[in-house]
Amino acid sequence: MRLPLSLLAALGAAVLSGLAAVGRVTLFALATFRHMLSPPFYGREFLVALGNVGWLSLPVVGLTAFFTGGALALQIYAGGARFDAQAVVPQIVALGMVRELGPVLVGLMIAARVTSSIAAEIATMKVTEQIDALVTLSTHPMKYLTVPRVLAGIVAVPLLVGLGDIIGIFGGFTVGVQSLGFNPSVYIRNTWDFLEPLDVISSLVKGLAFGFIATLMGCYAGMRSGRGAQGVGRATKASVEGASVLILAANFLLTGVFFSL
């Protein structure tokens, strides 16, 4: 009897802890929005964050999208051959990249590259009393550290997703034309004709949501970091785990919303 009860207690504790974490993240997000809407605004910090989140993520996002688009073309061609549907490669690559793989892969790449970096940087600042120093210098850490990074995520990640979509389609096009014998102009026309504005809008909206989640989780974990190197390590790990799970959950919800339109 004791074992089932203790298992139930452990489960209850885990649920309560999870709910408390959801509450803390929600309050952190609300505080971030509140600070976004009131001065002072740190334009220079925003531009630096924009460079880190957007520009410096381009190589990894581009390569990921290109290889994924290429692999997708091969898979669809091989799978389509089973029921004589190889011709739909351009349409399915475009739809798959724009509606699903582009935003999700870019979101996860941003979680790996940007969320971890933000969490480690802010956690180190906390451990070395730099956050306390900010406060004593009359600078609110939320305004100076969190708001510029989250805004940069909201602005840069949709652009990265758009670029990732294009590069992914180009990866499929390259494989389709070079290896699978598609006519280039037919491939492009089929891609262009098949995509609808809502596909692109859903992709960019997902990018906006994922950018917000990725940067917010990095800031949140960094600000809540424990002491020492272990605290920084835990904060970094927690930020990537949290951002990845939330990005996938948000993708599911947003896909459901756009699917119903």
């Binding site: 180190t124 306390d132 406060v135």
Partner: peptide, 18 residues
């Protein structure tokens, strides 16, 4: 902000912004 403007602080580890 006005309160903290009166203060300067030297932190143990310097706490300089990297």
């Amino acid at each position: 902000e006005a309160f903290l403007a009166c203060f300067g602080m030297l932190f143990q580890g310097g706490a300089l912004f990297d």
